[in-house]
Design a binder for these strands. Structure first.
Length: 452
RNA sequence: CGGGGCGUGGCGCAGUCUGGUAGCGCACCUGUUUUGGGUACAGGGGGUCGUAGGUUCGAAUCCUGCCGCCCCGACCA
C-alpha cells in the first residue's frame, strides 16, 4: 500500500477522552474512531489488525477441529426465557422490541442459540464430539464503558461451544480449548496466562481466564513467577506435534500450564498461595483478561432439551462448555503489552503491514525507483509493505512509522543509494543495519517465514 | 447508578467569573524555502460556540430544561 493512497488519519495530539496508552495510541494511529460511548468505528489500520487476529483465531480453531458458524447479532427473547436467563441477565443485556412488539435482544453470548441449533439437528451420540464457534459482534451495555476497545460496549468476540456425550469428553474439549488458546495467543506475540477464575453468570465449576500481564489490567492477579516461563515451545515435541485428539496429551499440557499457582482476585486463596509458592516467587500484579473457558455440564442442555441417544438407545443431555476470546479487546491488550513512548510496536504475527518503506527524498529519481523496486520485490514474495511516498520530511515519515508500529522499516535515501545500501531498522530495538536492497528484502522474507 | 468534570473549526485549548457578535497552536490549501528524526516565512479556507427555551438593546458568556462525552466508585469479556 502506498501511504498517499491510503486512509490513515494519524493525530499529533492525543484526544482528551483517552486515558490509557492503548486507547491513546489507537486514536492517534488512526485505527478507531468513537461513534458513541463504548462503540467504535474501525478505520483501515485498526480493521486490518482486527482481521489479522480473527484469521489467527480461525486458523487455530480449525486446527483444533472446531467448526465455524455465524449466528445473528439480534436474538429473540424466547430462547432466553427457555433457559431462564432472560430475567437473570441484568441491565448489561440490551433489550428492544421489533415493530410487532416482540422482545428482542442484542447478543451478549449465544449458548441458547447454539443449543437450539444443536437440538434441532443432532440426535445421536455418533455425531459427537462437536464444537461450533463463531466470531461475531457482541453487545454488553456496560454501565461505564472505558479504556477504548478494552472495555467497550460493542466488542468482537470468538465464542465456541462444545457438545459431548460424557463429562470426561467435555473436559477433554475444555483442555483442547485451553491448548488452542495458548497457541493463538503465542502467535499474536502475547503471553496469556491461564488462571483459575470465577464462572460468573454463565455458571459451572471448571473455568480458567487467560490474562495478559499489564499495569492497566482490570484484574488483580496472584501468581508464582515460574508461570511466566511456561511456553508451548517446551511442551512435548513442540508446537507442530500437538495431537488435539489425544485426551492424554491435552490433559498433560493443561496440567503443565495450570498446576503452577496463578489466580485472579476472585479465586485467590492467600493460604494456598503462601504455602505453595516460595516467598521470592510470589507476585501480585494486574492483568487484562483476553479469554475464558468454561465447562458447565448439562445446565443448558437440560433446560433446553438438547439430548442425544446414547449407544443404549436412551436419551441423555449433552455435556457442554463455552469458550471465548475477546478479539477486539486483544488489540488493546497487545498494545498495552507492546509499545514505547513513540507509539505501537506490533508483533510480527499481527502487524497490519509487514514492513514500512520510507523514501527520504520523494521525487528523487533514484530514490523513487529504489523504493518502487523494493515494493515490488516484497509484494512478489507475498508480503505487504506500507510505502510512505508522501512529500513529507524525513522526521514526519519516521514519526508516523514509529506511531503505527510496523516492526520493520526500510529507509531509502540518496545518500545510502550512492553506496548501494538502504537501512533496515527494527522498531522494537531501534537497531539499524545498512545492506543492499536485495539483502534487505531477503532478510524481511526470512523474518516472516512461517508467520505471514 | 452515587460523586466530580467537560461540550467553542478535524485534534488540543483560551475566551465564560466581569454580556458588546470568536481567538491561539496543530492539521488542511497556495507559494517560497528547507530536506537523513515533526524546517522557516508569507498568504488562505473552515466554527448556527452540544441543543431547546428564557433574561437582555445585545448571549459562547447569565438562568432553566434536555442531550452527549470523560474521570472516580460500585459493576463487568
Amino acid at each position: 500500500m502506498r501511504l498517499s493512497r491510503y486512509f490513515l488519519p494519524v493525530l499529533k495530539e492525543t484526544p482528551s477522552e483517552a486515558q490509557i496508552v492503548s486507547h491513546r495510541l489507537m486514536l492517534r494511529a488512526g485505527m478507531i474512531k468513537q461513534a458513541a460511548a463504548g462503540i467504535y468505528s474501525w478505520l483501515p489500520l485498526g480493521f486490518k489488525v482486527l482481521r489479522k487476529l480473527e484469521n489467527i483465531v480461525h486458523e487455530e480453531q480449525t486446527r483444533a477441529g472446531h467448526i465455524a458458524i455465524q449466528m445473528p447479532i439480534l436474538q429473540s427473547a424466547d430462547l432466553w426465557r427457555e433457559s431462564g436467563r432472560y430475567d437473570d441477565y441484568g441491565q448489561e443485556m440490551l433489550r428492544m422490541q421489533d415493530r410487532h412488539g416482540r422482545d428482542m435482544l442484542y447478543t451478549p453470548t449465544a449458548e441458547e442459540l447454539v443449543t437450539d441449533i444443536f437440538r434441532g439437528h443432532v440426535s445421536s451420540y455418533k455425531d459427537l464430539p462437536l464444537t461450533l464457534y463463531q466470531i461475531q459482534w457482541k453487545f454488553r451495555d456496560e454501565i461505564r464503558p472505558r479504556f477504548g476497545v478494552m472495555r467497550g460496549r460493542e466488542f468482537y468476540m470468538k465464542d465456541g461451544y462444545n457438545f459431548d456425550l460424557t463429562k470426561e469428553d467435555a473436559l477433554h474439549a475444555y483442555n483442547r480449548h485451553l491448548v488452542s488458546y495458548l497457541r493463538t495467543y503465542e502467535r499474536m506475540g502475547l503471553q496469556a496466562i491461564p488462571m483459575r477464575a470465577d464462572s460468573g453468570p454463565i455458571g459451572g465449576d471448571n473455568t480458567h481466564e487467560f490474562l495478559v500481564l499489564a499495569d492497566t489490567g482490570e484484574s488483580e492477579v496472584f501468581y508464582d513467577s515460574d508461570v511466566v516461563n511456561l511456553s508451548l515451545a517446551n511442551v512435548g515435541n513442540g508446537l507442530d506435534s500437538l495431537n488435539y485428539d489425544s485426551h492424554e496429551d491435552m490433559q498433560a499440557i493443561a496440567n503443565f500450564f495450570t498446576s503452577t499457582y496463578a489466580r485472579t482476585d476472585e479465586t485467590h486463596d492467600p493460604k494456598i498461595f503462601e504455602s505453595q509458592v516460595p516467598e521470592e516467587r510470589r507476585r501480585v500484579a494486574r492483568g487484562i483478561e483476553v479469554g475464558q473457558i468454561f465447562y458447565f455440564g448439562t445446565k443448558y442442555s437440560e433446560a433446553m432439551g438438547a439430548t442425544v441417544q446414547g449407544p443404549d438407545g436412551k436419551p441423555v443431555p449433552v455435556h457442554m462448555g463455552s469458550h471465548g476470546i475477546g478479539v477486539s479487546r486483544l488489540i488493546g491488550a497487545i498494545i498495552e503489552a507492546s509499545h514505547d513512548d513513540k507509539g505501537i510496536i506490533w508483533p510480527e504475527g499481527v502487524t497490519p503491514f509487514h514492513c514500512g518503506i520510507v523514501n527520504l527524498k520523494q521525487g528523487d529519481e533514484e530514490a523513487d525507483a529504489a523504493c518502487d523496486k523494493l515494493y515490488s520485490a516484497l509484494t512478489a514474495l507475498g508480503l505487504e509493505p506500507l510505502y510512505d511516498d508522501r512529500k513529507e520530511r524525513a522526521g514526519g515519515k519516521f514519526a508516523t512509522m514509529d506511531l503505527i508500529g510496523l516492526p520493520w522499516r526500510i529507509t531509502v535515501g540518496p545518500r545510502g543509494l550512492k553506496n548501494g545500501v538502504v537501512e533496515l531498522t527494527c522498531r522494537r530495538t531501534g537497531e539499524s543495519e545498512e545492506l543492499s536492497p536485495e539483502a534487505a528484502v531477503t532478510k524481511i522474507a526470512e523474518i516472516y517465514e512461517g508467520i505471514a
